[in-house]
Write a protein that binds this DNA or RNA. Structure first.
Lengths: 127, 127
DNA sequence: CTAACATATGAACAGATGTTCATATGTTAA
DNA sequence: TTAACATATGAACATCTGTTCATATGTTAG
């Protein structure tokens, strides 16, 4: 069982330096990529996706959303906070009630493209 | 400390039945919404976002990506599998080497819109 | 003021997720 | 066949994440 030494990454023979050198400078800052991943994380939860879909149709108060999705007010409120921090929804207060709505149209585009991707890949085999 | 009873969700007074009845039938199947969230989960990780960005520029082998991102071959390989299962990347083998590339253009659109959203929200205050 | 109610939030717990490590698989060359 | 190497993968571990529960905050009505 004398553990043989394996190269952790490939030998220099494998890497293609020309490609590496060409691609490397095109990469955005780490910070931007991090923020981007954080944004998509927000889309990556069924509850939040359902909330966004609900808000496609109409602005709505927290308890309406909770009723529609059959979830507790607390769970919805927590998720609305996440959506708001990501600037995907806004809120406005009217008396005791807080109404939430979509913040901008990127949300629709992103979700729309996601849906297209899914339907294309599921419906047919490799369009 | 006699725990008072709080309504778990809002009273009927609060919910707006007209809105609920209008929105409810517009919601997609649960299965679609689940798949959509699963798709965005794939975008919601820095490593995978970086991989996708790398592949924007050029098809590339596993060890090139690992070298570029300064990560182990194993970590990259695991993530490529996730990306492939989501049909975001394809692979083709050439001898010992496996080259990965973007599967379709939804990836670019989704990521592009995500970037726009971030830059709009960070750069200015509410365009 | 207090009661009622819509919403927000902190803490805790359970389940999901990404990386590492070791090793297996697949391919080429000798 | 064996050696070398590029890639894939299972298991384990630590971290992250979503829900629940209890309770706090904010608003209106009396």
């Amino acid at each position: 069982m004398a553990s043989r030494r394996y190269a952790e990454v490939c030998e220099e023979v494998c890497t293609h330096p020309d490609i590496l050198n060409r691609v490397k400078p095109e990469m955005p800052d780490e910070e931007r990529l991090y923020d981007l991943a954080e944004l998509f994380k927000v889309f990556g939860d069924t509850t939040r996706i359902r909330i966004l879909y609900v808000l496609f149709e109409s602005e709505m108060c927290v308890c309406d959303i909770a009723a529609l999705l059959n979830m507790t007010q607390s769970a919805i409120s927590h998720q609305l906070r996440v959506l708001k921090q990501a600037r995907l929804v806004r809120s406005r207060r009217e008396g005791k009630t807080v109404f939430y709505s979509l913040d901008d149209d990127h949300v629709r585009t992103v979700i729309g493209q996601g849906m297209e991707h899914i339907e294309e890949k599921h419906g047919r085999k490799q369009a």
